[in-house]
Simulated scan of single mutants.
Amino acid sequence: MIREAALGLSFATLTLLAVTAFAAEEPSTAAPLSGQLTITGASTIAPLASEIGKRLEETNPDLRIDVQTGGSARGVADVRAGLAAIGLVSRKLKDDETDLTAFTIARDGVGIILNTDNPVSVLTDEQIVDIYLGKIANWKDVGGKDAPITVVNKAEGRSTLDLFTHYFKLKNSDIKASVVIGDNQQGIKTVAGNPNAIGYVSIGTAEFEAGQGTPIKLLPLKGVAASVENVRNETFSLARPLNLVVKTAPEGTVKSFIDFAQSKDVHDLVKEQFFVPLQ
């Protein structure tokens, strides 16, 4: 009797354990996301963030993701003010932005662009600095045509400007700009429409536009071609992280978006934007 009871208990216990183990192996189904998520900031990241948002909306029909541009500075300001849940910042966070947390979703490079009609194919770092300081004002002084140089600079608050000035050790107040532009597309259109212009934009965007026939070309830096591939292998020095920033620890829909944006599920979208996916 005792032995039979023991055997019965043992069988019941094993059965319970088996059921528990089976239940643990069952995939958990997360509740669908809903509501609206507002994301603002860098124009460089905005197209990628929009595509990631559309893909997330496909499996969450009650979710709406609103992506707006305005520069990295806007992304930081809106997150701090509670106007956006996530900020798009295409650079490292600054020393005075330690109240924010950044989540990198890809990498990008910034390249110098000229019009394809400009015969100049290479400029040294020193020549680029002198052009932006106004010390070199004619293309003939760097092996080009006898024509005045149109210096295209980025507006304040643009992370591309921050990266450019940091790399070349320039102060924006010292730059002698002929034209001040906002996003990458404005910079590309300006240089494409002016054979004497020089500017700097996202390598991914410029490489795509050049491939589509837009009359621009990317210049190498220190002998290294400005290309997505060289950003990927980390041989191109003028590169940056593309970040999603938040003010508080992400949870709910915000966390779900960040996790999805950092996953392999969006690597194809990152590559389509000519950025470098996270390893």
Rank of each mutant, 00 (worst) to 15 (best):
I2A: 14
R3M: 07
R3S: 11
E4A: 11
A5D: 14
A5S: 10
A6C: 06
L7W: 12
G8H: 09
L9I: 13
A12T: 11
P27A: 04
S28K: 15
S28F: 10
T29M: 10
Q36C: 01
T40D: 07
A42M: 01
T44H: 05
S50A: 13
E51H: 09
G53S: 00
K54Y: 13
E57M: 11
D62I: 02
I65W: 00
G70Y: 04
S72A: 15
A73C: 05
G75N: 03
V76G: 06
D78M: 01
L83V: 09
L88G: 01
D96F: 11
E97V: 13
F103E: 00
T104K: 08
A106K: 04
I113T: 09
L114I: 09
L114V: 07
D117H: 05
P119K: 09
G134F: 14
K135H: 13
I136M: 07
I136P: 10
V142W: 08
D146C: 05
V152W: 03
R158F: 13
S159G: 08
L163K: 08
H166Y: 02
F168P: 07
L170H: 12
S173G: 14
S173H: 03
S178F: 03
V179Y: 07
N184M: 08
N184A: 13
T190H: 06
V191S: 09
A192K: 00
N194W: 08
N196A: 11
A197M: 05
I198G: 05
S202L: 09
I203D: 02
G213F: 07
L219Y: 08
P220L: 08
K222M: 07
S227M: 06
E229T: 15
N230M: 08
N230W: 04
V231H: 05
A239G: 05
R240W: 03
L244Q: 02
V246R: 00
K247I: 02
G252M: 05
G252K: 03
F260G: 00
A261N: 00
Q262H: 06
K264T: 13
E272W: 04
E272D: 14
F274K: 12
F274P: 07
F275G: 01
Q279I: 06
